[in-house]
């Protein structure tokens, strides 16, 4: 397993963000986005082996996110979080 190219890494990052944004659940969505940003930043300048490992994990996380978005949104509570309401 070789390290991903910059293009591959960026495209995975964008895919993960796009998928994460589909979570209707406020906290899970914000967490997914935050962790995606944090870990991509963390491995930006990592050496080859570490980057390859992180890339594989990222791809697994992406698949997991896709499944969980489906599951979470299927059972999403119709009442929104107060964080998503306009502050009075």
């Amino acid at each position: 397993m070789s390290a991903p190219t910059a293009v591959q890494a960026k495209s995975l990052f964008r895919a993960l963000l796009r998928e994460g944004k589909r979570f209707q659940h406020y906290n899970v969505r914000e967490y997914t986005l935050r962790r995606a940003r944090e870990s991509f930043r963390q491995y930006q300048n990592a050496d080859e082996a570490l980057a390859a490992e992180a890339f594989t994990k990222g791809k697994q996380d992406f698949e997991l996110t896709k499944r969980q978005v489906l599951l979470y949104n299927t059972y999403h509570h119709s009442t929104p979080s107060v964080m998503e309401l306009k502050q009075s």
């Binding site: 996110t65 979470y72 009442t79 107060v82 964080m83 309401l85």
Partner: peptide
Amino acid sequence: LSGRPLYLDMQSTTPVDPR
């Protein structure tokens, strides 16, 4: 309530992680 309250009671229980 206007919406679901923001959850700051992590000692009583925590949400299940998607993973």
